[in-house]
Design a protein around this nucleic acid. Structure first.
Lengths: 102, 102
DNA sequence: GTAACTAGTAACTAAAAAGTGCCTAATTTT
DNA sequence: AAAATTAGGCACTTTTTAGTTACTAGTTAC
């Protein structure tokens, strides 16, 4: 493996369980913080916001704030994030087959 | 997300950087411990053997011992492990495109 | 006679990741 | 007037993960 290994490059951006699950959810369309939190079993506010911030920094997602009270924030996929769709789909179809066998 | 989410199922089996890099290497053919260690920059013996043992337990790889001195052990993909090829390939091609842009 | 080779293991320590509880803001609902 | 609502931030503690060093075995090469 070298610094330029493409597989390594990819997993550096989605190296946590949470990020992949976030991606999976936002692939369905823009999602709000609270919705993500309820959807992703076991994630804490802290971990969710930390992951979201990193993914935003990495350019995978966009964060849109609606200046209202109570706050309203939406997370959507960037073009880059959307280009990861095949990875998540590959995981999904693998998982489906696997669950079928077990 | 539920217990049965296929994406979640999948990442539970390859939830670490090391495992994915191990998979990437063994997809090329059976590999010895020492070869993997030298190929995967930064991995320690401990982490490598730990990851390998887990992947073996999960049925992703096979471990073949040649009773010789010095020891000779080969790790190869099981059918299940091989079926993950599309996931790694998806990561690889994503990474290639990404590296191209950056 | 000792060093090198391979594929690890065990014990201990350090570092990173994650959990917990408490706090905020402006408006609506009870 | 108090409570709920939303999207987190902050400080502190626990848990998990990973690094470090030393050790093993049987044979060959020096």
């Amino acid at each position: 493996m070298q610094t330029h290994c493409p597989v390594h490059t990819t997993i550096n951006l989605i190296d946590s369980k949470w990020k992949i699950l976030i991606l999976r959810d936002i692939l369905q369309g823009p999602q709000r913080f609270g919705v993500l939190k309820r959807s992703i079993t076991g994630v804490s506010s802290k971990m969710l916001s930390q992951s979201l911030r990193e993914m935003e920094k990495d350019g995978l997602i966009n964060r849109t704030v609606f200046s209202e009270m109570p706050p309203h924030v939406e997370y959507s996929l960037s073009e880059l994030g959307n280009s990861m769709r095949p990875i998540i789909m590959a995981m999904e179809s693998w998982g489906l087959q696997y669950l079928d066998k077990v």
